[in-house]
Amino acid sequence: MNDLARRWAVAGLLLALVLLPAVASRYVTYLVIHILLLALNAVGFNLLFGQTGLLSFGQAGFYAVGAYTCARILLAWPSLLPGVLGGTAAAALAALLLGSLSVRHTRIYFAMLTLAFGMMIFSLAWKWRAVTGGDDGLVGIPRAPLELFGLVVALPTVERYYYVVLVAAVLAVALMHRVVHSPLGLALRAVRDSEVRAEHVGLNVRRLRLVAFTVAGAYAGLAGSLLPPLENTVTPPIAHWTASAEPVLATLLGGIRHFAGPLVGAFVLVAAKDVIVRFTVHWSLVLGAVVVALVLGFRGGLAGALEALTVRGARVRPVSAAAGEEGR
């Protein structure tokens, strides 16, 4: 796709998203909110995986930190912005803290630690009744009004709340686009390609990894803190490792080497899930099988496959070249 076509595509997509509540049913609008939330989470995850080469199996933990923090704030102070910002900040802080314990390790070790820390957050959500409500979770969370510069916007309907989520998502995705194309983004890709070389061109590899992990945590947290006003409840399963699989799969599905990959993946995943769970409760079975199939057969994801068709695969290569470094 050339630049102009891409701009038209983005404009068209944005227009469709803006018009959606007017033309689609409430349920579809609700589903698209979920697509946007997963897209936010996956875009953050791909800064970590596609750009920096680090895998995290614990993003659900940061999602939950965002969700629970936002829920607690809204229960005490029913105003949307403090809730969402507070949730995002708390998730970023958690990622910074846990990340600083993990970034010095090899990539394999790092992935292992993310799973363990994710489950730590899950066990907190489950057991720390006083704060999280234990297995009952938190209920009765208000869809608090948006208060901005003295302006108070009530959000009684899903459609109105949809626009809040849409604005947040568009801003966050646009911001990520800048980050990816900035010198920082280039430096992260250098770290991904070769840690040793990156260190020897003067890049502080640990700090860059920590930055990527914290930003990914913040994105997961933003997605998470937009959830309680929609659902009015928060329960521990959102922190479980099976939930961490969703941004991973969305990103793999869409394609890790393309900025739009996680967005496309989030769309396909939420749509597919909505259909599949009507037929079976064994969603994880499908999820797992698809992950295995993607890893074995389609490491470029949908975007990669599409590109292979249109550009004859000139640029889609496995990551094999980068493999040598980690050693065994």
């Binding site: 920082l184 991904r192 390609d193 860059l208 070249a321």
Partner: peptide, 24 residues
């Protein structure tokens, strides 16, 4: 850096030297 272009390989070194790698 195998997946970066040759040009980016040099750019990342130059930008790191200039302290620009933290510009996001």
């Amino acid at each position: 850096f195998p997946e970066l272009t040759a040009r980016e390989n040099l750019l990342v070194s130059i930008l790191a030297r200039q302290g620009a790698a933290r510009d996001a």
